[in-house]
């Protein structure tokens, strides 16, 4: 999922993360090392675990 402009994302622990780039990709596979942002980890997952 892509976010444009300045947005604030609240994670499961209630911590708020502000976007730092013009477009940001949100992690949807829940396995990114840079959550809440996507780091491409979904590509390493078997098909059924990919969002």
């Amino acid at each position: 999922m892509l976010l444009r402009g300045t947005q604030v994302v609240e994670d499961a622990d209630g911590v708020q993360h502000t976007t730092t780039r013009p477009v940001s990709a949100l992690c949807r596979c829940h396995r990114s090392a840079t959550k809440p942002w996507c780091d491409g980890t979904h590509k390493l997952l078997p098909d059924k675990l990919r969002p």
Partner: peptide, 11 residues
């Protein structure tokens, strides 16, 4: 580039 290109590839 880890994070930027995760966005850029989608775009």
């Amino acid at each position: 580039h880890v994070e930027a290109d995760a966005v850029h590839e989608q775009l």
